[in-house]
Amino acid sequence: MKVLLINGSPNGHGCTYTALKEIEKTLRAEGVETEMFYLGNKPISGCMGCRQCYTLGKCVIDDVVNKVMPKAIAADGIIVGSPVHYAAASGQATSFLDRLFYSSAGRLAYKPGAAIVSCRRGGASAAFDQLNKYFTISNMPIVSGNYWNQIHGNTPEEVKQDLEGMQNMRVIGRNMAWLLKCIEAGKNAGIDRPEGEEKIMTNFIR
């Protein structure tokens, strides 16, 4: 079992990284392999809606999105972390996730997903809600904690002082490991994932 952790902060070793590392340590203690991927601090193009990924099988913009896609498909679970910018996920994370999920063509379905957000003070619940929508539109079970998946602090040192937030990161890690083990046990018992239906598209203006 392997979990891919995606650091969507432009600061590679800041507050978001500190929270993700706490989850990573917990996952490894539970026997789950991990890989953390840093998106970097260079601009990431947003989705152009060209739909070329439908025929190419990957995004037409050949950058970090196409680099991460095989890792996401191979992973058993995915955790996305982002700082809060204007009560939303970072620009890098938003552009990246828009294109990753759009070009995935359903290949991330049924992988447990978790989102965590890091903020100095406010806007966490709005950013958390934004990130969860990528999972809920993609047939992905959401991994929760014992509070909303957020951490507070303006520096990594301050984040570590958020004892409740750090505890919640560990709870998320244990819950992710537990769900992955349950899915694996189900597979071994012959329980397959739900049978899908052909997608119905209903336009409200016809």
Rank of each mutant, 00 (worst) to 15 (best):
T18S: 09
K199T: 15
W178A: 15
R174Q: 14
P83H: 00
A115R: 04
V32F: 02
D76W: 10
V117P: 03
G31N: 01
M36T: 08
I44Y: 02
D162H: 13
I61D: 09
S95E: 09
A109E: 09
I78S: 05
F96T: 01
A72E: 07
K25R: 15
G145D: 00
L39H: 03
G46E: 03
E158C: 02
D129R: 11
H152E: 09
E22L: 07
N146K: 08
N41K: 14
N154D: 12
I23E: 04
V171E: 04
T16Y: 04
G145H: 00
S9A: 08
C53F: 09
G57P: 02
A126V: 00
I116L: 04
G12T: 10
A75F: 10
M36Y: 01
N175D: 10
M69A: 12
V80L: 12
L97A: 00
G49Q: 06
E33T: 06
D63Y: 12
K21C: 06
S82K: 05
G46F: 05
G122K: 12
P194H: 09
A29M: 08
R28D: 03
A124Q: 02
N41V: 02
H85E: 12
P156N: 10
M1N: 14
M169K: 08
E35N: 06
S82A: 12
G173Q: 02
M36K: 04
E164S: 14
V32T: 02
E184D: 15
V68K: 07
L163G: 08
P10W: 03
I200K: 15
Y17K: 13
N149R: 04
K181A: 08
S144Y: 11
E197G: 14
Q130M: 13
V3I: 15
T34N: 01
L100K: 03
V143T: 05
S144F: 11
K67S: 15
P83T: 01
R174G: 01
L180N: 06
R99N: 03
Y54G: 13
F135L: 14
G14H: 10
A19F: 03
Q167G: 07
H13T: 15
G14M: 10
I44F: 01
K42W: 08
K181F: 00
A124C: 08
N66D: 08
L56Q: 15
L4S: 05
R28C: 12
D62F: 10
S45T: 09
T16K: 06
A88S: 13
G57A: 06
R120M: 11
Q92V: 07
E197I: 14
P112R: 03
P70H: 04
